[in-house]
Write a protein that binds this DNA or RNA. Structure first.
Lengths: 165, 165
DNA sequence: CTTGGAATGTCAACAAAGCTGACGTATTGT
DNA sequence: ACAATACGTCAGCTTTGTTGACATTCCAAG
């Protein structure tokens, strides 16, 4: 693994630079989740509920299986979260129209209200960071993040962009 | 909070753009932790052990309290992790020299070996992403991440950079 | 030299959120 | 008719976080 390609354009690939990038991801992710977490802590919900709510809002009518793949958890784990959300009247689970084995998931009015509250908080931080960093930095930010994803996740990510456009 | 400043340089601040940034963070963080997670799954360790090992390697001799602040967990939670690492001979806890209440934490040879294995895996992905994205994108990536951090975390982050230089 | 407070460690109990494995039911497609 | 799929659920386990209580050790101020 000895990196002796050492051109000047590759100077930013020293282990020290990479390590700083790793730490930046760690600390930034903490900030990224901090605001929604604070809101969720006041109710009986956690980060798992937020993720489910986010992606149902993003792709209304999505199936359980699709959500499973996006979130990368087991159906048992997701089911526990989904059940409480349905019970609490934030999510509605409708039998599929074409395939009645499937369940199409939607947010109720209350669900949308919570989603808005959570994502407003998260977007506010994002907006501040974007504004501070400037458009070019934001483009670079997105480029690097996409390159870091697993190929499968990049596909899911792009599918959301196309569907949500 | 209505955003009617609408200049063309602010087009990237639409809710849709922000939402995509949020999702990019989510999917990228999954990739970011995937490789070390795979290694750790083969032993009796988890992500919490990785974090402790990383920051002890980064700042040898750090105190428990300092580590607590960096990781943002309770001492009980950290202690459980730290205890197993000490028991397994990966971390050494030495009584402080100036203040003997403190414990200075160091990695043993075995600890350093594991740290190298984990961070090699994580850096490999980082390196690939950086290389693919290019130096300018990397600079933007870092800028946005720093802007996303809580001020306290940014201080910790910068302290590590100065100390580790 | 005593004592208050700080730093650390530890016990117990608990919660959130992940996991595996097994099983049941409804529905669909072959 | 039958196999496969989508979903839900029960039971049990693990990791990693939390509170609260309490002991120990030690520095520093009085």
């Amino acid at each position: 693994m000895s990196e002796s390609t050492g051109g000047e354009t590759l100077l930013f690939l020293t282990d020290e630079q990479l390590r700083q990038g790793i730490e930046a991801m760690f600390f930034a992710y903490r900030g990224f989740t901090a605001d929604p977490d604070r809101i969720l802590a006041t109710m009986a919900y956690g980060r798992a509920h937020h993720r489910a709510i986010h992606f149902i809002a993003r792709a209304p009518g999505t199936t359980v299986n699709n959500l499973l793949e996006i979130l990368g958890v087991t159906k048992q784990s997701l089911n526990r979260v989904l059940r409480t959300l349905v019970e609490d009247g934030l999510v509605e689970s409708k039998v599929g129209t074409t395939d009645r084995r499937e369940r199409n998931l939607f947010l109720t009015e209350d669900g949308m209200a919570l989603e808005r509250r959570l994502s407003d908080a998260q977007r506010a931080r994002m907006r501040a960071a974007y504004r501070q960093a400037g458009p070019e930095a934001v483009a670079g930010f997105r480029t690097v993040l996409e390159a870091m994803m697993d190929p499968e996740m990049r596909r899911k990510y792009n599918a959301l962009r196309e569907g949500g456009a």
